[in-house]
């Protein structure tokens, strides 16, 4: 049969769909969830972002006004951007370094490896929860354990880390870094993928441990680093719970922990400016998409794929 020859018989669309009906039936729980809970609200929020919708009144079309205001006349948006970028740019690299360092240690063929892996992973399981954020507040409070240790060891009276606008954000960064577990597991899997004969060849070549790490491990791990970096960056931009709990939903002190999502939340559910909040949400989508696109564009310069 030549390529351009038409098939002898092609069933009409409805008949073909009928044949696949059972398949869609089985898919329906997920499909309903997708359309009703994800795609639907997303599309409607795109519409709402161009209205002045608040809970009290029906939406009125305002075009790009919300976006113009975000860009030109919103000091709290700029504060939120500041806080969020600080958080992303500090927590993501620190978390990557921490996760990689622990993964390298665990990859040494330690006894009880599975235990350590589970213990290090634990914070990631519970870290995002409200309970941990509450605990974190206690740890960094003026009479918290951090200050007690500082007092006992260095005789230094620490500030109330959370109440101080200069330090509050760093407690949140620390909380994020503490949850390095899932990245660590992925790094560990990546390290296991590197063939041992690569290191054997390098040791015959006379490469020290450090040189092996920087010249072999790190380059061969770049696909995993890239993956982790993208996932962590997206997660960090979306971070909400810790800041909400630690600042009691205020983003304080003096907006120093006003995460972007927290500001969005306040606009929507405290001030009931759903239209404006929707616009903020789409700006965040654009920022995340932009960052991810940049990451993918940069990948060809530093990520080494084997195949």
């Amino acid at each position: 049969m030549s390529v351009n020859e038409a098939p002898l018989y092609r069933a009409p669309l409805w008949l073909r769909f009928k044949g696949q009906l059972a398949g869609y039936g089985f898919l329906s729980p997920w499909l309903i969830g997708l359309f009703a809970l994800t795609l639907g609200p997303a599309v409607s929020s795109l519409y709402l972002s161009m209205t002045d919708y608040s809970l009290m009144s029906s939406p009125r079309w305002v075009g790009a006004d919300n976006y113009v205001r975000i860009a030109s006349d919103d000091p709290r948006f700029r504060a939120a951007m500041n806080v969020t970028f600080t958080y992303v740019l500090l927590s993501v690299p620190l978390k990557l370094i921490f996760a990689l360092a622990i993964a390298v240690l665990l990859n040494k063929g330690l006894k009880g490896l599975n235990w350590f892996r589970a213990i290090f992973y634990l914070p990631s399981l519970i870290g995002g929860s409200v309970a941990i954020a509450v605990l974190w507040r206690q740890v960094f409070a003026s009479d918290g354990i951090i200050n007690q240790v500082l007092m006992a060891v260095f005789n230094y009276e620490g500030p109330s880390w959370i109440a101080n606008p200069n330090t509050a954000i760093y407690t949140l960064v620390a909380l994020a870094v503490w949850q390095f577990g899932s990245s660590m597991i992925i790094f560990l899997a990546g390290l296991r993928q590197i063939p041992t004969d690569m290191y054997e060849a390098a040791s015959i070549d006379g490469a020290s441990r450090a040189r092996q790490f920087f010249k072999i491990t790190l380059p061969l791990l770049t696909p995993v680093i890239f993956f982790n970096a993208v996932i962590l960056t997206i997660d960090a931009f979306k971070a909400f719970t810790p800041a909400f709990v630690i600042s009691d939903g205020s983003g304080g002190p003096i907006d120093s922990t006003l995460f972007y999502t927290l500001y969005l939340y306040q606009e929507a559910f405290t001030n009931f400016r759903f239209g404006y909040a929707s616009a903020l949400a789409w700006v965040l989508v654009a920022i995340i998409a932009g960052f991810t696109a940049l990451a993918f564009l940069s990948a060809k310069y530093w990520v080494h794929y084997d195949d």
Binding site: P195, D197, M198, E200, A201, A202, S203, I204, D205, G206, A207, K215, I216, P219, L220, T222, H304, D306
Partner: peptide, 29 residues
Amino acid sequence: PASERGIAMVFQSYALYPHMSVRKNMSFG
């Protein structure tokens, strides 16, 4: 250590460094 024995080894899997060019592979040691 292996590097001080004056030996060179060719591995069954070749063990070439996949992220380096052939030139780099050969000059690494």
